[in-house]
């Protein structure tokens, strides 16, 4: 019973995460993101704001490096 309650409280959602080591900071993800959730950290790599990201995957599809992946977010 406790388990069932826990399941109803958890909202399943995807989030984009950037592989910092491979990112070339070109900014394609900033342009493709409709929610303004992506920014470039000091010209080094892209960062996705997990609170804004809705996991639509637009950035992941347009990233020329292919360093953005969608992960299942268990808790929000």
């Amino acid at each position: 019973m406790a388990f069932a309650m826990e399941v109803t409280l958890v909202k399943s959602k995807k989030n984009a995460i950037v592989d910092k080591k491979r990112c070339v900071a070109c900014g394609e993800c900033i342009i493709s993101c409709r929610k303004n959730a992506v920014s470039i950290n000091a010209g080094c790599f892209a960062v996705v704001d997990a609170n804004i990201c809705v996991g639509c995957g637009l950035c992941s599809r347009s990233c020329p490096v292919g360093c953005i992946t969608l992960i299942e977010q268990e808790e929000v």
Binding site: V24, A25, C26, E28, G43, C44, S62, C63, P64, G66
Partner: peptide, 17 residues
């Protein structure tokens, strides 16, 4: 490949990064 594949090895991009 992708529209902006050039950006992955653009010399200006590499230098500025």
């Amino acid at each position: 490949y992708k529209p902006r594949s050039w950006c992955t090895f653009c010399p200006m991009g590499t230098m500025t990064q």
